[in-house]
Amino acid sequence: METNTMEPNQTIEHEGIVVSINDRKIVVRIMAQSACSGCHAKGACSAADMQDKLIDIAPDGHDYHTGQRVVISGHQSLGFKAVLYAYVIPSILVITSLIVAYATTNSDMASAIISLATVSVYYGVVYLLKDRLQKTFSFKIKNQFS
């Protein structure tokens, strides 16, 4: 079940099943949906590329049980932000560091190593900030089925 509204804060919704529950998170498995192919947000939604995806959701005070069907939702803008952090910024860093390194060292090998080191440091910083980013990129349970 994928829904997109035409409001300024468009949301992406997926139907899933609660896989596990503990005090800190509810894990929901998103099932493959044929509607993903027709969704205009599929380029920004990693769920469109995969068969099943596990999503961690912060508990919201409602009672859920393992095996329960739910609909989760997230803002479409989060998908675009994820693409920016995962692909656009690293691409810019690689190209920029490659040009600057080649201009200063005039060596292909040194430029390539510096460029790869730069993007490695970037992904290392992203990894260190994963807890903060996980709070930014969050889904919420919109409704539940009996």
Rank of each mutant, 00 (worst) to 15 (best):
Phe80Ile: 07
Ala48Gly: 02
Ile30Ser: 07
Ser77Ile: 09
Asn9His: 08
Ala103Thr: 10
Ile12Tyr: 04
Ile17Cys: 07
Gln76Ser: 11
Lys130Glu: 08
Gln76Met: 13
Ile17Asp: 02
Ile89Asn: 07
Met109Tyr: 09
Met31Pro: 00
Ser37Arg: 09
Lys130Gln: 15
Ile72Arg: 03
Thr105Lys: 08
Asp108Gln: 10
Leu133Cys: 05
Gly67Met: 05
Ser91Leu: 11
Val119Leu: 05
Leu116Asp: 02
Val121Glu: 10
Leu133Ile: 07
Thr96Leu: 15
Val70Lys: 04
Ile114Ser: 02
Tyr123His: 10
His65Gly: 06
Lys81Ala: 12
Ser107Ile: 08
Ala32Val: 07
Tyr87Phe: 14
Gln33Tyr: 06
Val119Asp: 01
Ala41Phe: 12
Ser77Ala: 09
Met31Gly: 09
Phe80Asn: 06
Gln134Asp: 15
Ser107His: 09
Thr136Cys: 04
His40Phe: 08
Val121Asn: 09
Gly16Ser: 08
Thr105Val: 05
Ala110Tyr: 07
Met50Lys: 15
Val28His: 02
Ala35Ile: 08
Thr96Ala: 15
Pro59Ala: 10
Ala41Asn: 15
Val71Leu: 11
Arg24Ser: 13
Glu13Ala: 11
Leu129Glu: 03
Ser111Thr: 07
Gly79Met: 06
Ile99Thr: 11
Asp23Glu: 13
Glu13Pro: 00
Asp52Pro: 00
Thr5Ile: 11
Leu98Ala: 15
Tyr127Ile: 05
Thr66Phe: 06
Val71Met: 12
Asp49Val: 05
Ile30Cys: 11
Ala103Ser: 13
Thr96Asn: 06
Val27Arg: 09
Arg132Thr: 11
Asp131His: 09
Ser46Trp: 01
Pro8Cys: 04
Gly43Ile: 01
Ile92Phe: 15
Pro90Met: 01
Val28Thr: 04
Ile72Ser: 04
Cys39Leu: 05
Ser73Arg: 09
Cys39Gln: 04
Gln10Pro: 01
Asp56Ile: 03
Ala112Lys: 06
His75Trp: 07
Arg29Ile: 09
Lys81Pro: 03
Val119Cys: 08
Ala117Leu: 13
Met109Gln: 14
Tyr122Pro: 06
Met109Pro: 00
Lys130Pro: 00
Ile114Val: 15
Arg132Pro: 00
Val18Pro: 03
Ile113Ser: 05
Ile95Met: 13
Ile17Lys: 14
Pro90His: 02
Val94Cys: 13
Tyr123Leu: 12
Tyr64Ile: 15
Tyr87Asn: 14
Ser73Thr: 13
Leu54Asp: 14
Arg132Tyr: 10
Ala101Ile: 01
Ile72Ala: 06
Cys45Ala: 07
Ser46Leu: 12
Ser34Val: 14
Glu7Tyr: 06
Tyr64Thr: 14
Ala35Lys: 15
Thr118Val: 11
Leu133Ser: 09
Gly74Leu: 02
Thr66Pro: 00
Asn4Gly: 12
Asn4Met: 14
Ile12Gln: 03
Lys25Ser: 10
Tyr102Asp: 09
Thr105Cys: 06
Arg29Gln: 13
Gln68Trp: 03
Thr11Lys: 13
